[in-house]
Design a protein around this nucleic acid. Structure first.
Lengths: 203, 203
DNA sequence: GTCTATAAGAAGATAGAC
DNA sequence: GTCTATCTTCTTATAGAC
Protein backbone atom coordinates (compact mmCIF):
# COMPACT_ATOMS: atom_id res chain seq x y z
CA UNK A 1 0.00 0.00 0.00
CA UNK A 2 1.44 3.34 -1.04
CA UNK A 3 1.81 6.27 1.33
CA UNK A 4 -0.84 8.11 -0.65
CA UNK A 5 -3.32 5.29 -0.01
CA UNK A 6 -2.27 4.91 3.62
CA UNK A 7 -3.09 8.56 4.18
CA UNK A 8 -6.63 7.98 2.93
CA UNK A 9 -6.96 4.88 5.07
CA UNK A 10 -5.84 6.52 8.31
CA UNK A 11 -7.77 9.70 7.58
CA UNK A 12 -10.97 7.70 7.06
CA UNK A 13 -10.45 5.92 10.38
CA UNK A 14 -10.00 9.23 12.18
CA UNK A 15 -12.88 11.01 10.39
CA UNK A 16 -15.19 8.10 11.24
CA UNK A 17 -14.26 8.29 14.92
CA UNK A 18 -14.12 12.04 15.52
CA UNK A 19 -15.62 13.80 12.52
CA UNK A 20 -13.75 15.91 9.96
CA UNK A 21 -13.59 19.08 12.05
CA UNK A 22 -12.13 17.32 15.09
CA UNK A 23 -9.27 15.68 13.20
CA UNK A 24 -6.05 17.61 12.63
CA UNK A 25 -3.65 16.95 9.79
CA UNK A 26 -0.96 16.26 12.38
CA UNK A 27 -3.00 13.34 13.69
CA UNK A 28 -3.40 11.87 10.23
CA UNK A 29 0.34 12.24 9.61
CA UNK A 30 1.19 10.62 12.93
CA UNK A 31 -1.11 7.67 12.18
CA UNK A 32 0.65 7.23 8.84
CA UNK A 33 4.07 7.60 10.47
CA UNK A 34 5.22 10.79 8.78
CA UNK A 35 5.23 14.50 9.66
CA UNK A 36 2.35 16.80 8.78
CA UNK A 37 4.13 18.82 6.07
CA UNK A 38 4.86 15.59 4.17
CA UNK A 39 1.13 15.09 3.65
CA UNK A 40 1.12 18.11 1.37
CA UNK A 41 3.32 16.30 -1.15
CA UNK A 42 0.40 13.89 -1.64
CA UNK A 43 -2.67 16.08 -1.15
CA UNK A 44 -2.93 19.82 -1.44
CA UNK A 45 -5.14 20.32 1.63
CA UNK A 46 -7.10 18.55 4.36
CA UNK A 47 -10.28 19.01 2.32
CA UNK A 48 -8.50 17.38 -0.62
CA UNK A 49 -7.94 14.27 1.50
CA UNK A 50 -11.64 14.20 2.38
CA UNK A 51 -12.61 14.56 -1.28
CA UNK A 52 -10.25 11.73 -2.24
CA UNK A 53 -11.97 9.46 0.32
CA UNK A 54 -15.31 10.38 -1.19
CA UNK A 55 -14.05 9.65 -4.70
CA UNK A 56 -12.62 6.31 -3.64
CA UNK A 57 -15.93 5.44 -2.04
CA UNK A 58 -17.85 6.24 -5.19
CA UNK A 59 -15.54 4.07 -7.28
CA UNK A 60 -15.97 1.18 -4.83
CA UNK A 61 -19.73 1.51 -4.80
CA UNK A 62 -20.51 -0.49 -7.92
CA UNK A 63 -18.40 -3.44 -6.84
CA UNK A 64 -20.08 -3.41 -3.46
CA UNK A 65 -23.54 -3.30 -4.99
CA UNK A 66 -22.65 -6.17 -7.29
CA UNK A 67 -21.27 -8.25 -4.43
CA UNK A 68 -24.55 -7.88 -2.56
CA UNK A 69 -26.68 -8.07 -5.68
CA UNK A 70 -27.97 -4.71 -4.62
CA UNK A 71 -27.51 -2.57 -7.68
CA UNK A 72 -31.05 -3.26 -8.73
CA UNK A 73 -30.40 -4.34 -12.27
CA UNK A 74 -29.64 -7.95 -11.36
CA UNK A 75 -32.86 -8.58 -9.53
CA UNK A 76 -34.71 -9.91 -12.53
CA UNK A 77 -31.79 -12.15 -13.45
CA UNK A 78 -32.03 -13.58 -9.94
CA UNK A 79 -35.71 -14.40 -10.32
CA UNK A 80 -35.01 -18.11 -10.16
CA UNK A 81 -33.15 -17.77 -6.88
CA UNK A 82 -35.79 -15.63 -5.26
CA UNK A 83 -38.79 -17.56 -6.45
CA UNK A 84 -38.11 -20.30 -3.95
CA UNK A 85 -36.42 -18.66 -0.97
CA UNK A 86 -37.08 -20.35 2.38
CA UNK A 87 -37.43 -18.78 5.83
CA UNK A 88 -33.91 -19.92 6.75
CA UNK A 89 -32.56 -18.39 3.57
CA UNK A 90 -34.32 -15.13 4.36
CA UNK A 91 -32.71 -15.18 7.83
CA UNK A 92 -29.33 -15.86 6.27
CA UNK A 93 -29.84 -13.03 3.80
CA UNK A 94 -30.82 -10.51 6.50
CA UNK A 95 -28.01 -11.50 8.87
CA UNK A 96 -25.56 -11.50 5.97
CA UNK A 97 -26.55 -7.98 4.94
CA UNK A 98 -26.36 -6.78 8.56
CA UNK A 99 -22.99 -8.42 9.20
CA UNK A 100 -21.49 -7.16 5.96
CA UNK A 101 -22.54 -3.57 6.61
CA UNK A 102 -21.42 -3.78 10.24
CA UNK A 103 -18.06 -5.51 9.83
CA UNK A 104 -16.66 -4.68 6.39
CA UNK A 105 -13.75 -2.51 7.44
CA UNK A 106 -14.22 0.03 4.68
CA UNK A 107 -18.03 0.15 4.51
CA UNK A 108 -18.29 0.51 8.27
CA UNK A 109 -15.86 3.41 8.57
CA UNK A 110 -17.35 5.16 5.58
CA UNK A 111 -20.88 4.90 7.00
CA UNK A 112 -19.76 6.32 10.34
CA UNK A 113 -18.00 9.19 8.61
CA UNK A 114 -21.12 9.96 6.56
CA UNK A 115 -23.20 9.81 9.74
CA UNK A 116 -21.07 12.56 11.28
CA UNK A 117 -21.02 14.75 8.17
CA UNK A 118 -24.55 14.20 6.85
CA UNK A 119 -25.98 17.60 7.85
CA UNK A 120 -23.10 19.70 6.52
CA UNK A 121 -23.41 19.10 2.80
CA UNK A 122 -26.34 18.06 0.64
CA UNK A 123 -24.11 15.81 -1.47
CA UNK A 124 -23.30 13.81 1.66
CA UNK A 125 -26.98 13.70 2.68
CA UNK A 126 -27.93 12.29 -0.69
CA UNK A 127 -25.09 9.78 -0.65
CA UNK A 128 -26.05 8.49 2.80
CA UNK A 129 -29.69 8.13 1.86
CA UNK A 130 -28.90 6.42 -1.42
CA UNK A 131 -26.50 3.91 0.12
CA UNK A 132 -28.30 3.00 3.32
CA UNK A 133 -31.96 3.73 2.60
CA UNK A 134 -33.09 4.03 -1.01
CA UNK A 135 -30.94 1.37 -2.68
CA UNK A 136 -31.50 -1.41 -0.14
CA UNK A 137 -35.23 -0.64 -0.11
CA UNK A 138 -35.62 -0.63 -3.88
CA UNK A 139 -33.62 -3.83 -4.27
CA UNK A 140 -35.63 -5.61 -1.61
CA UNK A 141 -38.89 -4.25 -2.89
CA UNK A 142 -38.14 -5.84 -6.27
CA UNK A 143 -37.22 -9.07 -4.49
CA UNK A 144 -40.41 -9.20 -2.43
CA UNK A 145 -42.48 -8.36 -5.49
CA UNK A 146 -41.15 -11.54 -7.09
CA UNK A 147 -41.62 -13.60 -3.94
CA UNK A 148 -45.27 -12.60 -3.81
CA UNK A 149 -45.80 -13.38 -7.49
CA UNK A 150 -44.09 -16.71 -6.96
CA UNK A 151 -46.51 -17.49 -4.16
CA UNK A 152 -43.74 -17.71 -1.55
CA UNK A 153 -45.09 -14.75 0.42
CA UNK A 154 -48.50 -13.11 0.78
CA UNK A 155 -49.53 -10.67 -1.95
CA UNK A 156 -49.06 -7.40 -0.07
CA UNK A 157 -47.48 -4.08 -1.05
CA UNK A 158 -43.83 -4.98 -1.78
CA UNK A 159 -42.54 -1.48 -0.94
CA UNK A 160 -43.96 -1.81 2.56
CA UNK A 161 -42.69 -5.37 2.86
CA UNK A 162 -39.21 -4.09 2.06
CA UNK A 163 -39.63 -1.42 4.72
CA UNK A 164 -40.76 -4.04 7.26
CA UNK A 165 -37.82 -6.26 6.38
CA UNK A 166 -35.08 -3.65 6.09
CA UNK A 167 -35.93 -0.90 8.62
CA UNK A 168 -35.20 -3.16 11.62
CA UNK A 169 -31.88 -4.15 10.04
CA UNK A 170 -31.06 -0.46 9.55
CA UNK A 171 -32.02 0.52 13.09
CA UNK A 172 -30.01 -2.33 14.64
CA UNK A 173 -27.06 -1.46 12.42
CA UNK A 174 -26.97 2.15 13.59
CA UNK A 175 -27.42 0.87 17.15
CA UNK A 176 -24.33 -1.34 16.82
CA UNK A 177 -22.33 1.50 15.28
CA UNK A 178 -22.92 3.36 18.54
CA UNK A 179 -22.74 0.36 20.87
CA UNK A 180 -20.79 -2.54 19.35
CA UNK A 181 -21.17 -4.44 22.64
CA UNK A 182 -24.84 -4.96 21.78
CA UNK A 183 -24.18 -6.92 18.59
CA UNK A 184 -25.07 -10.34 20.03
CA UNK A 185 -28.36 -8.98 21.34
CA UNK A 186 -29.03 -7.31 17.99
CA UNK A 187 -28.42 -10.56 16.10
CA UNK A 188 -30.90 -12.40 18.33
CA UNK A 189 -33.72 -9.91 17.82
CA UNK A 190 -32.80 -9.71 14.14
CA UNK A 191 -33.39 -13.44 13.71
CA UNK A 192 -36.66 -13.27 15.65
CA UNK A 193 -37.65 -10.34 13.43
CA UNK A 194 -37.07 -12.22 10.19
CA UNK A 195 -38.77 -15.42 11.36
CA UNK A 196 -41.82 -13.45 12.45
CA UNK A 197 -41.72 -11.46 9.20
CA UNK A 198 -41.75 -14.75 7.31
CA UNK A 199 -44.64 -16.01 9.41
CA UNK A 200 -46.91 -12.98 9.16
CA UNK A 201 -46.36 -12.71 5.42
CA UNK A 202 -47.27 -16.34 4.77
CA UNK A 203 -49.69 -16.52 1.83
CA UNK B 1 -35.70 34.58 27.95
CA UNK B 2 -32.48 35.44 29.75
CA UNK B 3 -29.14 35.82 27.99
CA UNK B 4 -27.96 32.66 29.74
CA UNK B 5 -30.85 30.70 28.23
CA UNK B 6 -30.46 32.35 24.84
CA UNK B 7 -26.84 31.17 24.74
CA UNK B 8 -27.99 27.56 25.23
CA UNK B 9 -30.67 27.97 22.59
CA UNK B 10 -28.36 29.39 19.91
CA UNK B 11 -25.55 26.99 20.79
CA UNK B 12 -27.92 24.03 20.41
CA UNK B 13 -29.01 25.27 16.99
CA UNK B 14 -25.40 25.59 15.86
CA UNK B 15 -24.25 22.28 17.37
CA UNK B 16 -27.17 20.49 15.66
CA UNK B 17 -26.21 21.96 12.28
CA UNK B 18 -22.43 21.74 12.35
CA UNK B 19 -21.40 19.60 15.30
CA UNK B 20 -19.62 20.77 18.44
CA UNK B 21 -16.12 20.85 16.96
CA UNK B 22 -17.15 22.98 13.98
CA UNK B 23 -18.85 25.68 16.04
CA UNK B 24 -16.76 28.51 17.48
CA UNK B 25 -17.65 30.50 20.56
CA UNK B 26 -17.62 33.63 18.43
CA UNK B 27 -20.44 32.18 16.31
CA UNK B 28 -22.53 31.43 19.37
CA UNK B 29 -21.93 34.92 20.69
CA UNK B 30 -22.82 36.49 17.34
CA UNK B 31 -26.09 34.50 17.19
CA UNK B 32 -26.95 35.75 20.67
CA UNK B 33 -25.98 39.31 19.76
CA UNK B 34 -23.03 39.76 22.11
CA UNK B 35 -19.24 39.45 21.85
CA UNK B 36 -17.41 36.22 22.59
CA UNK B 37 -15.77 37.28 25.87
CA UNK B 38 -19.20 38.09 27.31
CA UNK B 39 -20.15 34.42 27.06
CA UNK B 40 -17.62 33.67 29.77
CA UNK B 41 -19.63 35.65 32.31
CA UNK B 42 -22.37 33.02 31.88
CA UNK B 43 -20.42 29.82 31.21
CA UNK B 44 -16.85 29.05 32.09
CA UNK B 45 -16.02 27.31 28.79
CA UNK B 46 -17.42 26.05 25.51
CA UNK B 47 -17.64 22.56 26.98
CA UNK B 48 -19.60 24.04 29.89
CA UNK B 49 -22.22 25.29 27.40
CA UNK B 50 -22.47 21.81 25.89
CA UNK B 51 -22.86 20.24 29.33
CA UNK B 52 -25.59 22.73 30.21
CA UNK B 53 -27.51 21.74 27.06
CA UNK B 54 -27.19 18.10 28.08
CA UNK B 55 -28.42 18.88 31.59
CA UNK B 56 -31.39 20.85 30.27
CA UNK B 57 -32.24 17.96 27.97
CA UNK B 58 -32.19 15.49 30.82
CA UNK B 59 -34.50 17.66 32.89
CA UNK B 60 -36.92 17.97 29.98
CA UNK B 61 -36.90 14.25 29.33
CA UNK B 62 -39.48 13.19 31.91
CA UNK B 63 -42.01 15.76 30.73
CA UNK B 64 -41.50 14.65 27.14
CA UNK B 65 -41.95 10.99 28.04
CA UNK B 66 -45.09 11.81 29.98
CA UNK B 67 -46.51 13.83 27.11
CA UNK B 68 -46.06 10.89 24.77
CA UNK B 69 -47.00 8.31 27.39
CA UNK B 70 -43.63 6.84 26.68
CA UNK B 71 -42.03 6.59 30.07
CA UNK B 72 -43.18 3.01 30.37
CA UNK B 73 -44.80 3.23 33.78
CA UNK B 74 -48.12 4.48 32.45
CA UNK B 75 -48.67 1.69 29.98
CA UNK B 76 -50.66 -0.45 32.35
CA UNK B 77 -52.76 2.51 33.38
CA UNK B 78 -53.55 2.99 29.71
CA UNK B 79 -54.74 -0.58 29.28
CA UNK B 80 -58.29 0.56 28.65
CA UNK B 81 -57.24 2.86 25.83
CA UNK B 82 -55.03 0.29 24.13
CA UNK B 83 -57.39 -2.65 24.47
CA UNK B 84 -59.59 -1.27 21.72
CA UNK B 85 -57.33 0.69 19.38
CA UNK B 86 -58.44 0.76 15.74
CA UNK B 87 -56.32 0.81 12.59
CA UNK B 88 -56.99 4.52 12.13
CA UNK B 89 -55.95 5.17 15.70
CA UNK B 90 -52.74 3.23 15.16
CA UNK B 91 -52.04 5.38 12.08
CA UNK B 92 -52.72 8.51 14.08
CA UNK B 93 -50.41 7.29 16.84
CA UNK B 94 -47.55 6.50 14.44
CA UNK B 95 -47.87 9.74 12.49
CA UNK B 96 -48.19 11.68 15.73
CA UNK B 97 -45.00 10.16 17.13
CA UNK B 98 -43.17 10.79 13.85
CA UNK B 99 -44.37 14.38 13.55
CA UNK B 100 -43.61 15.20 17.16
CA UNK B 101 -40.05 13.87 16.93
CA UNK B 102 -39.52 15.58 13.58
CA UNK B 103 -41.00 19.00 14.30
CA UNK B 104 -40.68 19.73 18.01
CA UNK B 105 -38.12 22.50 17.86
CA UNK B 106 -36.19 21.32 20.87
CA UNK B 107 -36.41 17.54 20.38
CA UNK B 108 -35.39 17.85 16.74
CA UNK B 109 -32.30 19.96 17.36
CA UNK B 110 -31.26 17.81 20.28
CA UNK B 111 -31.55 14.61 18.23
CA UNK B 112 -29.45 16.08 15.42
CA UNK B 113 -26.81 17.20 17.89
CA UNK B 114 -26.70 13.72 19.45
CA UNK B 115 -26.46 12.21 15.98
CA UNK B 116 -23.30 14.23 15.30
CA UNK B 117 -21.71 13.53 18.69
CA UNK B 118 -22.77 9.91 19.25
CA UNK B 119 -19.36 8.32 18.58
CA UNK B 120 -17.32 10.69 20.71
CA UNK B 121 -18.60 9.84 24.18
CA UNK B 122 -20.25 6.72 25.59
CA UNK B 123 -22.63 8.84 27.65
CA UNK B 124 -23.99 10.35 24.44
CA UNK B 125 -24.20 6.93 22.77
CA UNK B 126 -26.27 5.60 25.66
CA UNK B 127 -28.48 8.68 25.70
CA UNK B 128 -29.21 8.46 21.98
CA UNK B 129 -30.02 4.77 22.17
CA UNK B 130 -32.21 5.20 25.22
CA UNK B 131 -34.20 8.08 23.76
CA UNK B 132 -34.66 6.94 20.17
CA UNK B 133 -34.39 3.14 20.34
CA UNK B 134 -34.83 1.43 23.70
CA UNK B 135 -37.55 3.56 25.26
CA UNK B 136 -39.86 3.73 22.24
CA UNK B 137 -39.43 -0.01 21.68
CA UNK B 138 -40.11 -1.00 25.27
CA UNK B 139 -43.15 1.24 25.48
CA UNK B 140 -44.59 -0.08 22.25
CA UNK B 141 -43.75 -3.65 23.15
CA UNK B 142 -45.85 -3.28 26.30
CA UNK B 143 -48.62 -1.71 24.22
CA UNK B 144 -48.65 -4.51 21.64
CA UNK B 145 -48.53 -7.14 24.39
CA UNK B 146 -51.82 -5.72 25.64
CA UNK B 147 -53.31 -5.45 22.18
CA UNK B 148 -52.59 -9.14 21.57
CA UNK B 149 -54.04 -10.17 24.94
CA UNK B 150 -57.09 -8.03 24.19
CA UNK B 151 -57.54 -9.86 20.90
CA UNK B 152 -57.08 -6.72 18.82
CA UNK B 153 -53.92 -8.04 17.14
CA UNK B 154 -52.51 -11.51 16.47
CA UNK B 155 -50.70 -13.22 19.34
CA UNK B 156 -47.15 -12.82 18.11
CA UNK B 157 -43.94 -11.79 19.87
CA UNK B 158 -44.65 -8.25 21.09
CA UNK B 159 -40.97 -7.22 21.04
CA UNK B 160 -40.78 -8.01 17.35
CA UNK B 161 -44.13 -6.33 16.70
CA UNK B 162 -42.73 -3.18 18.31
CA UNK B 163 -39.66 -3.46 16.07
CA UNK B 164 -41.88 -3.86 12.99
CA UNK B 165 -43.97 -0.87 14.00
CA UNK B 166 -41.24 1.49 15.19
CA UNK B 167 -38.16 0.75 13.03
CA UNK B 168 -39.78 2.21 9.87
CA UNK B 169 -40.76 5.31 11.84
CA UNK B 170 -37.17 5.64 13.07
CA UNK B 171 -35.66 5.17 9.63
CA UNK B 172 -38.00 7.69 8.01
CA UNK B 173 -37.32 10.13 10.84
CA UNK B 174 -33.56 10.01 10.31
CA UNK B 175 -34.20 10.30 6.56
CA UNK B 176 -36.18 13.52 7.07
CA UNK B 177 -33.51 14.90 9.39
CA UNK B 178 -31.15 14.65 6.43
CA UNK B 179 -33.65 15.55 3.72
CA UNK B 180 -36.61 17.54 5.05
CA UNK B 181 -37.90 17.91 1.49
CA UNK B 182 -38.88 14.24 1.58
CA UNK B 183 -41.32 14.57 4.48
CA UNK B 184 -44.50 14.31 2.38
CA UNK B 185 -43.21 11.15 0.73
CA UNK B 186 -42.21 9.75 4.13
CA UNK B 187 -45.67 10.41 5.55
CA UNK B 188 -47.30 8.54 2.67
CA UNK B 189 -45.18 5.41 3.04
CA UNK B 190 -45.57 5.70 6.82
CA UNK B 191 -49.35 5.46 6.54
CA UNK B 192 -49.09 2.54 4.10
CA UNK B 193 -46.70 0.87 6.55
CA UNK B 194 -49.06 1.14 9.49
CA UNK B 195 -52.14 0.01 7.54
CA UNK B 196 -50.25 -3.01 6.25
CA UNK B 197 -48.88 -3.67 9.74
CA UNK B 198 -52.44 -3.62 11.05
CA UNK B 199 -53.55 -6.01 8.31
CA UNK B 200 -50.80 -8.61 8.62
CA UNK B 201 -51.15 -8.69 12.40
CA UNK B 202 -54.91 -9.28 12.27
CA UNK B 203 -55.78 -12.09 14.70
C1' DG C 1 9.34 12.26 -0.48
C1' DT C 2 10.54 13.38 4.09
C1' DC C 3 12.31 16.48 7.14
C1' DT C 4 12.87 21.17 10.22
C1' DA C 5 11.60 25.75 10.63
C1' DT C 6 8.25 28.95 10.33
C1' DA C 7 4.64 31.84 8.58
C1' DA C 8 -0.18 33.22 8.98
C1' DG C 9 -4.20 32.99 11.06
C1' DA C 10 -7.85 31.05 13.93
C1' DA C 11 -9.79 29.84 18.34
C1' DG C 12 -10.45 29.50 23.39
C1' DA C 13 -9.98 32.04 27.21
C1' DT C 14 -8.51 36.05 30.47
C1' DA C 15 -7.71 41.02 32.14
C1' DG C 16 -9.47 44.97 33.19
C1' DA C 17 -12.13 49.36 31.79
C1' DC C 18 -16.81 50.92 31.72
C1' DG D 1 -22.84 42.16 32.10
C1' DT D 2 -20.75 43.87 28.04
C1' DC D 3 -16.97 45.65 25.87
C1' DT D 4 -11.82 46.11 23.77
C1' DA D 5 -7.37 44.41 23.99
C1' DT D 6 -4.52 40.71 24.52
C1' DC D 7 -2.46 36.12 25.61
C1' DT D 8 -1.59 31.48 24.49
C1' DT D 9 -2.09 27.66 22.01
C1' DC D 10 -3.43 25.18 18.22
C1' DT D 11 -3.83 24.39 13.22
C1' DT D 12 -3.22 24.65 8.43
C1' DA D 13 -0.06 25.33 5.15
C1' DT D 14 4.46 26.80 2.88
C1' DA D 15 9.65 27.27 2.24
C1' DG D 16 13.57 25.22 1.48
C1' DA D 17 17.36 21.79 2.95
C1' DC D 18 18.47 16.99 2.33
Amino acid sequence: MTTKQRILDEALTLFAEKGYGNVYVGQIAEAVGIKAPSLYKHYKSKQDIFNAILDEMKSRYDKQADALNMNGSDVNADANIFSSVSEDELVKMGIGLFSYFLHDEYVCRFRKMLTLEQFRDSELSLLYTKQYVDNPLSYQSAMFAMLTVGGVLAKEDADVMALHFYAPIYMLLTLCDRQPEREAEALKILERHIRQFSKIYQP
